[in-house]
Design a protein around this nucleic acid. Structure first.
Length: 599
DNA sequence: GCGGATCAC
DNA sequence: TATGGTGATCCGC
């Protein structure tokens, strides 16, 4: 708006004007992790030129170009709409915004101390522990695409999410190492063992990130937040040889932002003080906030919002331009509000399970069916591990043009077996083939949503009877599941009437997969949920029994049993409501995707 | 409820 | 030569 629009396009913020229609694309091509640490000293303009030149002409590039044009058009509409709004009387919109701000102010909670812990270049750091010579060279983990890279590589402009061949163009001497998840998980466990000492209910946000509430720790140890976190970071470094950065603040949103301030191996504290928080947010680029990515950044930039402080003057337009959820989210950004409730990842309810893979372009009925079959088999394993069935099945394909399509279906009953997954996904794949003649795909995925738990709540184990081996869900002992089954069957009957065209396929699958009690779990899970505390435990008989003894010794058994029975009997919809929103736009908002499910 | 899109890691 | 996998949410229709 008031932007002077200088001649040189700054590349570490979105281009002010589309002087060259490819400026916005070049900025986009820099990737999603531009705001990450280690890029400050890098000439982003030069980097984007290199990425642009090596990408140009590829199918990937062409697709990104098209997306960029769509976004540019959307932003033009956005600006036109804003111009229209400016000519209207917006006093009621302003009043509404101010009332919401007042309401949020009342809910501000400054009593908690939340810490966000983030390992520095985690995968790369773990690899460097095994091979110290890698510390001396620019190095990245990941083969097709970089998942992370060390700080030497970042100096060249390499970033996570970047194609390796692009990264090698930026840094020809870059050493790329394949991922080794077992190794990273092992190291992550070491770190979590330490975090637990500071907050037994800490929350794993991903393999290398966690939130802690250290309010109690600080009180019990008569220690300030900064000192406590210094101590924790030193302990982690000493015992695991991994350096971590941390952010300390009154809520998770600010803690997350703060953990990036002094990366690597540093920490940053935003005091529990309204004025200090408002000041911190005022100058903060909106892109630094979890949930605001490249697209939203550009849209906000277009209407004159670069920092969280810029949000307030625009408050009258936000709901109309971006919707109510975005409006509320932005108001919370302006005020520096976020959730203070930190809880173990296991207490969040999983909503979907899926698998997908990329491969050399394929096409033709046979190849596609073979790939679908394989995908179904992969998904069966994941569903077995997660102990769920899906009421809804989603097929995803990425065409050779990089265009992504999804199609979903509701099978006549919840599904988890590869045969069923294949059988019920096949018709929607066939439909896609019809829709898109000569379809060539580079990715295929299957996902189950609307999940139904297949976990057995084995009440017998409360009374001294050894728990069943987790490996093979037995044909008997399904009594606790009967209610859910009845519910499923009821819904199934209703649905079946609308599924005339499915009946034949279903019959076929019944014949092949046989009666219901068939052996169905080939993979042996290494963890088994304790029926008392509901937390996963090593699937080792002796250890498991010991754990149950421990749980029973606590005076919580009655509540636990009652709680789990209630949970099992609660209708699915009610159970869903129980889980809080994990989306950044959610009222208590903070994002925590990609959880660790005890892998 | 479905499909596309965005976002995080 | 060549650009990932898993999971969540929001919006428009």
């Amino acid at each position: 708006m008031d932007d002077p629009g200088g001649p040189e396009p700054a590349q570490d913020s979105p281009p002010a004007a589309a002087s060259d229609s490819h400026d916005t694309l070049k900025y986009h091509l820099l990737g999603p992790s531009l705001t990450k640490a280690g890029q400050d000293a890098v000439d982003q303009r030069k980097v984007s030129e290199i990425i642009y030149s090596v990408s140009k002409g590829s199918k990937f590039f062409t697709r990104e170009e098209a997306r960029d044009q769509i976004l540019t058009a959307k932003i033009e509409r956005l600006l036109a709409e804003k111009t229209r709004l400016e000519s209207l009387d917006l006093t009621s919109e302003i009043r509404r915004a101010d009332e919401y701000i007042a309401e949020l102010e009342l809910s501000r909670d400054l009593s908690q101390t939340v810490v966000h812990v983030d390992c520095d270049a985690f995968f790369a750091a773990v690899e460097e522990l095994d091979r110290p010579e890698l510390k001396e060279v620019p190095m990245a983990v990941g083969v097709g695409v970089l998942t992370t890279c060390n700080y030497l590589a970042r100096k060249f402009g390499c970033r996570s999410g970047m194609a390796t061949f692009v990264a090698k163009k930026l840094c020809p001497q870059l050493v790329c190492i394949p991922q080794n998840f077992d190794k990273y998980n092992a190291k992550a466990r070491e770190i979590r063992a330490i975090l637990e000492q500071y907050d037994p209910r800490f929350e794993s946000a991903s393999i290398d990130e966690a939130y802690l509430n250290i309010t109690a720790y600080c009180a019990e140890n008569q220690i300030g937040p900064e000192e406590a976190v210094q101590r924790m970071r030193a302990e982690i470094l000493e015992k695991t040889k991994i350096s971590v950065s941390a952010g300390i603040a009154a809520n998770a949103k600010i803690a997350k932002i703060a953990s990036n301030k002094n990366k690597p191996n540093g920490q940053f504290y935003v005091p529990h003080d309204r004025a200090a928080i408002m000041e911190f947010m005022a100058s903060l680029p909106v892109r630094k906030v979890n949930g605001i990515g490249r697209v939203f950044e550009r849209e906000l930039d277009a209407i004159g919002i670069k920092t969280c402080g810029d949000i307030y003057p625009q408050r009258a337009y936000l709901a109309k331009l971006f919707g109510q959820k975005a409006f509320q989210f932005l108001m919370q950004c302006y005020l520096g509000l976020g959730r203070t409730r930190i809880q173990p990842a296991e207490e969040y309810e999983r909503k979907s399970v899926g698998t997908e893979s990329t491969f050399k372009e394929i096409g033709g009925k046979e190849e596609l069916r073979e790939k679908l079959r394989w995908t179904a088999e992969e998904l069966e394993k994941d569903l077995a591990r997660a102990q769920v069935k899906g009421r809804t099945l989603v097929l995803k394909v990425k065409l050779h043009t990089f265009e992504v399509l999804t199609r979903q279906t509701v099978p006549p009953r919840p599904v988890c077996l590869a045969q069923d997954l294949y059988t019920f996904a096949l018709p929607i794949l066939a439909k896609l083939e019809k829709e898109i003649p000569d379809m060539k795909v580079r990715l295929m995925g299957l996902r189950c949503t609307n999940l139904v738990s297949t976990k057995k709540l084995d009440i017998n184990s409360f009374f001294g009877i050894a728990p069943k081996k987790p490996a093979a869900p037995s044909t008997g002992g399904e009594s606790s599941e009967r209610e859910l089954d009845a519910e499923e069957e009821f819904e199934e009957a209703a649905r079946q009437e609308r599924q005339d065209d499915m009946n034949e396929l279903e019959k076929l699958s019944q014949e092949i997969s046989g009666p219901d009690g068939l052996e169905q779990s080939p993979a042996e899970p290494r963890f088994w949920d304790c029926p008392v505390c509901q937390r996963p435990q090593a699937a080792d008989d002796r250890a498991f029994n010991e754990h149950i003894d421990f749980c029973l010794s606590r005076d919580t058994i009655k509540e636990a049993v009652k709680g789990s029975r209630d949970a099992a009997e609660m209708p699915l919809k009610a159970r869903k409501r129980k889980a809080g929103s994990s989306h950044p736009y959610g009222a208590t908002g903070d994002s925590r995707q990609k959880r660790l499910f005890f892998t």
